[in-house]
Design a protein around this nucleic acid. Structure first.
Lengths: 158, 158
DNA sequence: TAATCTGCGACAAATATCATCTGAGTTGGA
DNA sequence: TCCAACTCAGATGATATTTGTCGCAGATTA
């Protein structure tokens, strides 16, 4: 099991955006973190499609959060970048080969798939328990505001 | 995030082995499930390396479980096939780019990595809560014993 | 009008997964 | 003792996915 590297970038970008007063261009976000400009742009588009960030077009444009950081969970970001598909996909091998089970026994999900789905739910629930604002509280936000501008109405971690 | 398809095969194979009285060859396990012979062999080797199954060499050989099915968790199998590496690997981008944090602030793990690790622990704990014996109780074991031989000392599920 | 930013698609490289084949070692029987 | 059949094990190649790049078109503001 492997998580896309873009997930880490996206989460950090959201933390930065939570401290920014004005739109931050994608290229600037990449430079702030020292990662590939063109590739980060792709992940930001994924965040935009999930309505976590909103693009501001034109001069002095960039990306802004669509809602307060406290209302964006880490799970939201992971799901947006990594995709909504479950990690485990049951191929129903119980219906193949010599010991294929009769269809009447396959009305309910395969036991293996059930266990995997339960575990994944636990994973997602854990991720959903932390917000971008929670994360921002653990970073040196003064350094961020110094570079991208202060927040208009107070700190994010309330 | 994606889980190797071999995980599903391995779990099903363990369920079959839990019902087998004698060693079951890798090729037979593949035929029973209708999957690739040579590829399943590779995953069985991973299970052997993790000491979940043991190869019996020579004529009439095959694979057997190393311990009772009740003492083999789904997590043991997943870890053996999928590898022990965590899904999320922190690349420490907080130390790169313009807003790189000073090393003195990086003694503790990055907040992002911490959240990811917590979620993964929840995932593993959930998988560890179900054993191969639990899974076998949900399958039609009579069909299995019919093909690979009965268990010597009673059923696997308590 | 000019400058700057995002959106989207095509394209190339790197990596992981999937699949197969051939060889080495062991067992059972003659 | 010898032979033959059967097994696992590791090396090797094909395929799919991810990762990363580039360029052009559309939009907005100074």
């Amino acid at each position: 099991m492997k998580l896309s590297a873009g997930v880490e970038w996206a989460v950090h970008c959201c933390v930065v955006l939570s401290q920014a007063a004005r739109p931050v261009p994608a290229a600037r976000l990449a430079d702030l973190h020292g990662v590939s400009r063109s590739y980060l742009a792709k992940h930001l588009q994924a965040l935009a499609k999930a309505e976590i960030v909103r693009p501001v077009e034109g001069r002095d444009g960039g990306y802004v959060l669509t809602r307060p950081a406290a209302e964006i969970s880490v799970h939201d970001v992971v799901r947006a970048v990594d995709g909504p598909e479950p990690a485990f996909r049951c191929t129903e091998i119980r219906q193949q080969g010599e010991l294929a089970a009769p269809p009447e026994q396959c009305r309910t999900p395969c036991g293996v798939a059930r266990v995997m789905a339960d575990a994944e739910r636990a994973w997602r629930r854990s991720l959903a328990g932390t917000s971008i604002a929670d994360l921002a509280a653990g970073f040196d936000t003064s350094r961020i505001t110094e570079l991208v501008g202060d927040v208009p109405g107070g700190a994010a971690a309330g």
